[in-house]
C-alpha cells in the first residue's frame, strides 16, 4: 500500500463541502448510475428533493461495490477470452497479464469494501450472469458472437472503456483520500490496458492507441 500522508483536515472539509453542496455530488451519483452501474441504481433512484436540492451522496461502500461489480465482469471477460484458440501469442501474453492485474484490483477493492462493512459481490460464475451484467452495462456486443481476435479485442476495449468511466465517477464520489488514490491508480492501469489492446488491434497507429487527451470523456 502506498504510504501517503493523510490530510484529515482536508477530508473533513471535503465532507463538509459535500454536505453543503449536495447537488454536484448527487449529479455525479446520477451519472454513475446512468452509466449502467447496477449497484447504484437503487441509491440514485432514491434521491429526493430537499429545499430544491438533490440529497444523499452515495457512500464509499456503495461506490466500491459498483466498481467491484464491473471489475468482476472484466475478470470473467479476460478469463473467457483466454480460452479462445484464435488469439496470437502476443495477444495471449498481454491478456494473461491483464487478467492477473484485474484480479489484483478485485482483491484490493474487496479488502477496502470489507473494511467498510460492505458486502463483496460474488465472482461471476456463469455465462448467463456475465451476459446479464453486460446488458446492465449497455455493452451491445454479445460474447457468444465473438469469433476472431479482432472481435475479442474490440469487446475488451469496450469493457475497458466502461470501467474507466466507472472509475472516473468513483473518483468524483469517493470521500476517503486513500480510496481516491487507489481508484486513480487502478483507473490509470485500466487506461494502459485499453492502449495496449488498441495497439494490438491497430499496430503502429498511435492515434488509435491513444485517441483522446482525456480518458473517460472528461
Amino acid at each position: 500500500m502506498r504510504d501517503r500522508p493523510r490530510p484529515l483536515a482536508a477530508e473533513r472539509t471535503r465532507r463538509e463541502l459535500m454536505r453543503g453542496a449536495r447537488a454536484p455530488a448527487a449529479a455525479a451519483a446520477l451519472a454513475l448510475a446512468a452509466s449502467g452501474a447496477p449497484a447504484l441504481l437503487a441509491p440514485a433512484a432514491a434521491l429526493g428533493k430537499s429545499g430544491g436540492a438533490l440529497i444523499r451522496p452515495v457512500s464509499d461502500a456503495t461506490v466500491l461495490a459498483s466498481v467491484l461489480r464491473v471489475e468482476s465482469v472484466l475478470v470473467f471477460a479476460y478469463e473467457r477470452t483466454l480460452t479462445s484458440a484464435v488469439l496470437s501469442s502476443a495477444a495471449r501474453a498481454a491478456l494473461a497479464s491483464f487478467l492477473d492485474q484485474e484480479r489484483a484490483h478485485v482483491r484490493r477493492l474487496s479488502l477496502d469494501l470489507g473494511a467498510l462493512g460492505g458486502t463483496v459481490p460474488e465472482p461471476l460464475a456463469t455465462m448467463t450472469a456475465f451476459e446479464s451484467e453486460l446488458r446492465h452495462l449497455r455493452v451491445k456486443r454479445r460474447p457468444a458472437a465473438l469469433r476472431t481476435e479482432r472481435e475479442y479485442l474490440r469487446f475488451l476495449i469496450a469493457l475497458e472503456t466502461v470501467i474507466a468511466r466507472h472509475y472516473r465517477f468513483a473518483i468524483e464520489l469517493l470521500t476517503s483520500v486513500e480510496r481516491v488514490g487507489t481508484a486513480a491508480e487502478i483507473m490509470a492501469n485500466e487506461a494502459q490496458h485499453e492502449t495496449v489492446l488498441r495497439e494490438l488491434l491497430n499496430p503502429g497507429r498511435i492515434r488509435r492507441a491513444v485517441p483522446s487527451a482525456f480518458v473517460a470523456g472528461v
Binding site: 463541502l17 474507466a164 494502459q192 495497439e199
Partner: peptide
C-alpha cells in the same frame, strides 16, 4: 488528485492522469 476537494475537479485530473499513464505505457 486526493487533495482536490470538488469531485468534478478530481474527475478532470483523473482523466488527464489516465492519459499520461497511456503515454508512459507507449
Amino acid at each position: 488528485l486526493p487533495r482536490l476537494i470538488p469531485g468534478w475537479l478530481r474527475a478532470v485530473a483523473a482523466g488527464i492522469l489516465a492519459n499520461e499513464s497511456q503515454h508512459l505505457s507507449v
